[in-house]
Nucleic acid binder design. Sequence first.
RNA 1: UCCUCGAUAGCUCAGUGGUAGAGCAAUCGGCUGUUAACCGAUCGGUCGCAAGUUCGAAUCUUGCUCGGGGAGCCA
Length: 463
Amino acid sequence: MVTNSIEKILATGEVGATITVKGWIRSKRESKGFAFVDVNDGSCMANIQVVIAQTVPDYANQIKRLSTGASVEFQGNLVESPAKGQRVELQAAALEIFGESDPETYPLQKKRHSFEFLREIGHLRPRTNTLGAVFRVRNACAAAVHQFFQEKSFLWVHTPIISASDCEGAGEMFNVTTLNPDKLPRTSDGKVDYSQDFFGRQAFLSVSGQLEAEIMAMAFSNVYTFGPTFRAENSNTSRHLAEFWMIEPEMAFCNLQGDMNLAEEFLKYVFKYVMEKCLPDMEFFQQRIDDSVLATAENIISNDFARLTYTEAIEILKKTDRQFEYPVSWGLDLQSEHERYLAEEVFKKPTILTDYPVEIKAFYMRLNDDGKTVAAMDILAPKIGEIIGGSQREERLDVLESRIAAQGLNLQDYWWYLDLRRYGTVPHAGFGLGFERLVQFMTGMTNIRDVIPFPRAPLTVEF
RNA sequence: UCCUCGAUAGCUCAGUGGUAGAGCAAUCGGCUGUUAACCGAUCGGUCGCAAGUUCGAAUCUUGCUCGGGGAGCCA
């Protein structure tokens, strides 16, 4: 007798086999002489139907305890199901109840719940159909990320979670300290004396692993990071988290073209992988969440992304009849409405914009020969907006120094980053991808807090 | 942080100044190879919190808290 996953039993279980099933009860339908119980173990969307006849020992008492949410083990024969709805079902001969679930207080019903309510019971929501599908797809995405880069011989590098400097200037950071906030040591000018702190200086949770990834790329050529990052921004939106996972490949001897090609190939690969591994879950999203997810996946996999420069995009936005709330003018950053218009209405597919004005992009992006633009690229996805941001990095020491100075940053803070240009510098490029946004894009889930098991956001840290 | 909408039974919601409602869930019973099962009955409320207006407030006013959507910041 073997315990198999319900996914395996439903797909390939042989009629007549004696099997064991373990899982949690999703619903019970009681009759006079017998009962049906749906059991789910998380291995797939579908439940296995278990038929419990009165011949089961202590039937009346046991049936009462088999309520929604209870954890159980059933043993019996797998039989062909005489009714529609399932190929096979389990005819229970014996059962064991590991943990009961009081139906008067168990908050999950068979009926649909709002995602807002499910966020309040973050410890139980993984047991629902939708969140179950989300986390299976999330897992498949993560596996696809590693498989894609490993097949290309990229090195997975572990960049630090605690970091000393706001290297990218990517927003507010969380402090990491062991100082007692009730008794902060002060310097003579009244500021907090971080020389007495754990690291001897101020430290933060990392907002990006990019600069460290560049260090590793200068030794291993092609690397990628895949790990958590942190932003202390007071962002209250359906697209932002305080703790999220980021993927950042970095390639030595690579320019912006190569960077774009890799990003496009990457997205196609991940979508294809998930469509192959999680089709039932994707079909569930199509049916219950967003009826465009399958078409979107197909669109990503089989069409080339649109590619144009920022300057060309500005021309398109200026020519359209569409009225925008924010002005369009060369030199201004694009607003959400502009990005969505381009990706959703003009091109109707992922759209890569390149060569942004130098003033609106980060210091490390490579200055183009025109002196006005940098070798940056953003991939705009319909409905999600910016899903990937990348660039060719500035490899010329003198240009990088003047860019850092121009942004009012302190050269000393970047001494090791500048050393990379001092010793064996090479053209290199990379991009960053918010993992949760990828999962959102793939599943059609509208709120980013529902695609990560334990969301961290302002006032949100309970589970 | 800004704009906007909201908070009433375990859940989803109705109720615009005069005795607190429905569907679902739960409980009990019935019936049926059921599958969002079905039928009947029962149970279920500090109407987010605080103050104010009024003879009387779930309802009107103010403040606060929390949540949704949008924006900014960004991934």
